[in-house]
Amino acid sequence: MPQLDFDIITLGHGSGGILTNKLLETGVFELLKNPLLDEHHDGAIFELSGRLAFSTDSFVISPVFFPGGNIGELAVNGTVNDLAMCGAVPKYLSLSFILEEGLTMKEFWEILVSIKFTAEHAGVQIVTGDTKVVERGKGDRIFINTSGIGQVHEKAQISTKRVQTGDKIIVSGHIATHGIAIMSVREGLEFETEIVSDTAHLNHTIKALLDEYGAEIHLLKDPTRGGVASVLNEIVRDTRLGINISQKSIPVLEEVYGACELLGLDPLYVANEGVFIAFVSAEIADDFVKKLQKLEHGQHAAVIGEVTTEHPKQVILQSQIGGRRVVNMLVGEQLPRIC
């Protein structure tokens, strides 16, 4: 942490004057420096060609620090993953903070360091941004917005319109871990093994899969808010097809499943931050899973279902005891302030 003559964020840090410049020059710009950010201009100028993907997201998670990560790491991973789901290789991010008066510099610095570390590992540059400060009680310590631009992979043909009957549905890992990690902190729950968020950048994994399978990957989605159930319901709504999934095939950590039962939650509706869903041609599904299991963040990948015409616009779950039920769209907000 740099040597500063203040320990907490004040309204003066949002004034545009000396305190703002100290915060940015000694803190943000120095830590995140790169040639494009070093211009200190109102925007960033760079060259890209061909098909591009653009995404933006805002992060208001509570608590700001949670088992396995913090809001800074989550903000970078979230937008990187949104670009990756478009079949793009993320290149550049913007980074904007809304800071509440009273946030400590120690906390802000820890978040900044996580942002730097995560961006470097994801292979993206933070090239522009903004910082605002609001009065005490008008925010919740810190909110972050990130926007990103990426180059679409030359083999990618990712679209809901490409989902077809017979496609296999693959999940890349254990579901519901992030949401339960957050809830365990909020509810003061303790487990024999600590449940930590699965927050991770998935772009390197997705690129490796696109390199090998290209257009055989029809659709990619990251099941964040609303979980797997919401994503699948959005897809059947848009395609007018049906989906069958098998409960016994869906990977869920035992302690996460237990926590869901304790809290009265269905893992299918709980948020994830390091998991993606892929719709792929049936012909490559088994090979795709084997490949994914050898990649970072894919060790627990599994086929969980398939696309069908049997029951248009419905997701049907076959339970572990053989029964069948409709998995509906989430009504309301099961877990607020989860990302």
Rank of each mutant, 00 (worst) to 15 (best):
D7K: 15
I8Q: 14
H13N: 10
H13C: 04
I18Q: 13
L23M: 10
L23E: 00
L24K: 12
E25H: 13
T26E: 15
L32F: 07
N34W: 05
P35T: 10
L48M: 15
T56Y: 10
F59H: 13
V60D: 12
V60C: 12
P63W: 03
V64W: 05
G69H: 02
N70F: 13
I71V: 13
G72L: 09
G72F: 05
E73D: 11
V76D: 00
L83G: 03
A88E: 07
P90R: 04
F97N: 00
F97I: 08
F97H: 03
L99D: 02
G102D: 02
F108C: 00
F108E: 01
I111W: 09
I111R: 06
I115V: 14
T118I: 08
T118N: 06
E120F: 09
A122G: 06
A122R: 10
I126P: 00
T128I: 12
T128H: 11
G129H: 03
T131L: 05
R136W: 02
K138S: 12
D140W: 07
N145W: 12
S147Q: 15
S147H: 11
G148A: 11
I149Q: 02
G150Y: 00
G150E: 04
H153N: 05
K155N: 15
I158R: 00
I169T: 03
V171S: 06
S172M: 10
I175L: 07
T177D: 01
H178W: 07
G179E: 06
I182M: 10
S184N: 08
E190Y: 14
E192K: 11
T193K: 14
T193S: 14
E194R: 11
I195M: 06
T199L: 08
T199H: 08
A200H: 12
H201G: 09
L202Y: 05
N203S: 15
T205D: 04
I206K: 01
I206V: 15
A208F: 07
A208W: 00
A208Y: 01
E212F: 04
E212C: 03
E216I: 06
L219C: 03
L220Q: 08
D222L: 14
D222N: 15
R225E: 12
G226L: 08
V228I: 15
L232R: 01
I235M: 05
V236F: 01
T239A: 09
T239L: 05
R240Y: 13
G242W: 04
I250L: 01
V252G: 03
L253H: 12
L253I: 13
V256D: 02
C260D: 04
C260G: 09
G264M: 08
G264D: 03
D266Q: 06
V270K: 03
V270F: 02
N272V: 07
G274H: 03
A278L: 10
F279W: 14
A282K: 11
I284F: 01
D287G: 11
Q293A: 05
L295A: 02
L295D: 00
V303T: 12
V303G: 02
I304S: 01
V315L: 01
I316M: 08
Q320A: 14
Q320W: 03
Q320T: 15
G322Q: 10
G323C: 09
R324V: 14
Q334H: 13
L335I: 15
I338V: 14
C339K: 15
C339Q: 14
C339R: 15
